[in-house]
């Protein structure tokens, strides 16, 4: 082999080795391989969370369904009040707290409503409707009276 050939072979080896090294580096390339399991784990977590949410929604729906079914069938525990000084031991009263734990009922219990207990106040049955209607009538009467006065004043001016 001539010196030129040797030099060419050496150059090829150097370039080839560099390329091979680069290929190996590219092939081995750790970052994608390391991130793939992480991404898969993240994806699995997302999927799991979605499934959990779906399961939770399903369970809530089932709970509502069970509650509605039990109330529709009038299945109530026939418990007898153990203490004589409270009415909370009645079957209805016993059923009430259970209803409150329901998600749909939770929204309802946020409303300011009265519930019976020993020494409870009478429910707020006050209404402003009569007062509103009466004030409406008063305003109309006042307006009509002002108009009448105005007309009288005009007629006096004309005379």
């Amino acid at each position: 082999m001539s010196s030129l050939g040797r030099a060419a072979l050496a150059a090829m080896l150097i370039v080839g080795a560099g390329t091979a090294n680069g290929q190996i580096t590219t092939v081995v390339a750790a970052p994608p391989r390391k991130t793939e399991p992480a991404q898969q784990a993240a994806a699995q977590k997302r999927e799991q969370a979605a499934q959990d949410s779906v399961a939770r929604v399903t369970m809530t729906g089932m709970k509502e369904w069970v509650d509605s079914a039990s109330s529709a069938l009038a299945i109530r525990p026939d418990t007898v009040p153990t203490t004589s000084d409270t009415a909370l031991g009645t079957p209805r009263a016993a059923a009430s707290p259970a209803r409150r734990s329901d998600s749909s009922e939770t929204v309802r219990t946020q409303e300011p409503t009265a519930e019976f207990k020993k020494g409870a106040r009478a429910p707020d049955t006050a209404t402003l409707i009569p007062a509103i209607a009466l004030s409406g009538v008063a305003l109309i009467l006042a307006g009509v009276a002002m108009k009448r006065r105005e007309r009288l004043a005009r007629s006096r001016v004309r005379r």
Binding site: T90, S96, T125
Partner: peptide, 27 residues
């Protein structure tokens, strides 16, 4: 209470042992 007298939740139903409370607007 808009639609009718209300049975106070937690009180007994009329006929049960215990106090049954029914409330409504006076007007």
């Amino acid at each position: 209470l808009r639609s009718g007298p209300g049975h106070m939740i937690g009180s007994a139903l009329p006929g049960d042992s215990g106090t049954s409370v029914i409330s409504a607007h006076r007007d």
